[in-house]
Amino acid sequence: MTAPPAKPRNPGPGWGYGFLLWADRWWPRWLFQLVMSAGTWIALGRMPRQRRASREYLSVVLDRNPRVIEVYRHFSAFMDFLMVKLRTGSGAPIHCDLEPTHADEFNALVGSGKPALFGTFHFGSSDLLGYLLSDRDQRVSILRLQVENSEDTRLLGERFGDKVSYLWVNDPREMLFALKGAIEAGRSVALKCDRVDHSARTEAFNFLNARRLFPFTIYHLAILFQRPVVYCIAIPTSDPGRIQVYSSSVFHPDSNQPREQILEAAREHFQSVLTLLESLVRNHPYLWFNYIPLNPVAKAD
């Protein structure tokens, strides 16, 4: 029998999140910002792999070698979003402004209460979207890697726990069965679809100047379980209590079509999602919260 994989840890001490929340509440803004900035510089110095990945990503998206201050901004944006998650988990109100394109389709799907597969990315405020669906009559299971010191996830789980549950998947072999269980229980599932390491199937799509591999499993699940797929991407606004949400069109797998035809329609759908994502990434380059090598370029056929 193989031992379960060890849970990864977020950087920093276990008490770090509690301290941040406390300092955010009690310290003067200038002091809190100063400490956050110092912490971000320390993180930058102590995380060479993430720093390298950030430089690699920024050189692609900016089309030149990034300056150190730009790598700092990339790290700093993540710290800012971490604070948004901690505050939201602690009860701070948050409101979604849905962009009008595809809004009717999205509202009709979410308002119907019917289960669906919600895809998103490690980008901007998107990590909050699974929780916010619970305000819209959706019972949602969020696919997550269980990390030992993850106070933001714990707080958000507590706040939205009546309708949101986690599918903890640290062993990739368990992922599909965990998803099967949730879908068969009639729940919607929210999963991020940009990291290829845990994905059962990947395919190549145009993204950031190349044909890059992306997870494609969500569409296979849609076909097997006859569930619609919709993507949402969120970015922060100048008001910390509001996020701007971009939804994709809704993909409905048509069971009357041959499998290859459905998959071709799925590929078109996902490419349109990635085109939207790329335009947002280019406008907000520091909000790409993947500090790992950029999605690999597919080998030529």
Partner: peptide
């Protein structure tokens, strides 16, 4: 065959034989 094929096969077996395969 990969894990998606395995899942598809599990669903077909469950339907055909009226069984439930509980975990991976």
């Amino acid at each position: 065959l990969d894990s998606i094929d395995a899942l598809e096969l599990v669903l077909a077996l469950e339907k055909e034989f009226g069984i439930k395969i509980g975990n991976s």
